[in-house]
């Protein structure tokens, strides 16, 4: 009996694969697609305005609220600006950093450098953000101490603090894929470029950058999406500044359907973003 089943599975490769994958696939469908669907479903329900109970009746009111109130358009734009800034700054820092780690540093030191890049990930998210909070205190923070002798002023809490905080938090997610990409880059290709007359700057622009571009895009998926969804850092470093995550957080206890409608905005933006960079091959480098 068992033998004949074995024989059957041996001959029917697709059945075998389906049986093997059914559990993880089912899990993925339930967790990811199910969650997304539940989110969408919730966003078209009503609530009892007094008790905040969800009433399962169809309405588009949540979407009209989101799209007619200019505040939510503004907060979307602000969130996008933060996510884009964080991604750009991370890229600008991570590219030379990864290049140094992968191509210039002694191979024996590379594991140490990778570990160093990872150190921020070892500490708790909250500890790190609170540490930045103490740095940003307008009166007594470290930044004020650092900048005031130069006649500057600490930016205090707000958008800039949020961008700096998020950049710090997500930088490793940008460095690591680029590092992996640059390490795979054959050194002969760099030699070839120099051999053909290109100075290092040109080699970097025309050879290193285009070849590692998909890994930069892969890193950007992390920094961009993590920034789009963050609300805790914004609460701690943002002062009065808010992002989409905060809107969701503020509303989901009192008006879950509205919060669900708002949280579809970053979902849609991420889908567009992923579709946009799919062609670069970034998704193969995640």
């Amino acid at each position: 009996m068992i033998k004949s089943a074995q024989h059957f599975l041996n001959r029917h490769v697709k059945t075998r694969a389906a049986l093997l994958l059914s559990l993880p696939l089912g899990w993925m469908i339930v967790i990811y697609l199910g969650a997304l669907f539940a989110l969408f479903l919730t966003s078209i329900w009503k609530i009892d305005t007094f008790t905040s109970d969800v009433i399962r009746e169809f309405t588009l009111e949540n979407f009209t609220d989101v799209f007619t109130d200019r505040a939510y358009f503004n907060v979307t734009i602000r969130t996008l600006m933060v996510a884009i800034s964080v991604t750009l700054i991370c890229a600008v820092i991570a590219i030379p950093m990864a290049f140094y780690m992968a191509r210039i540093a002694k191979p024996s030191n590379r594991p140490i450098l990778v570990a160093l890049v990872l150190t921020p990930l070892w500490a708790s998210y909250l500890v790190k953000v609170y540490a930045w909070r103490t740095m940003f205190y307008p009166e007594s923070g470290f930044l004020q101490w650092l900048i005031s002798p130069l006649g500057g002023k600490s930016p205090g809490f707000g958008m800039i603090a949020v961008i700096i905080g998020l950049t710090y938090l997500w930088l490793p997610y940008m460095v690591l894929p680029i590092y992996a990409g640059m390490e795979k880059l054959p050194s002969s290709v760099l030699d070839a470029s120099a051999d053909l007359g290109a100075k290092p700057g040109r080699t970097f622009r025309e050879v290193v950058m285009p070849i590692t571009w998909p890994t930069i895009m892969a890193g950007s998926v992390f920094t961009f999406s993590l920034s789009m969804g963050d609300y805790i850092t914004v609460q701690i470093l943002g002062g009065t500044f808010q992002m989409l995550g905060n809107v969701v957080y503020q509303n989901f206890s009192l008006n879950l359907p509205f919060a669900a409608a708002v949280s579809l905005i970053p979902v849609i933006i991420m889908m567009i973003y992923l579709a946009g960079i799919r062609k670069t091959g970034a998704l193969n480098n995640l």
Partner: peptide, 28 residues
């Protein structure tokens, strides 16, 4: 430095630029 020498190299692993087509490689 290599870029200031009137010599050129053919590499063991060819070292073609993977993101450029053949003619662009040659024109580089």
């Amino acid at each position: 430095p290599p870029y200031d020498r009137d010599v050129n190299t053919v590499f063991q692993d060819y070292a073609l630029f993977p993101h450029m087509d053949v003619i662009t490689n040659i024109e580089y």
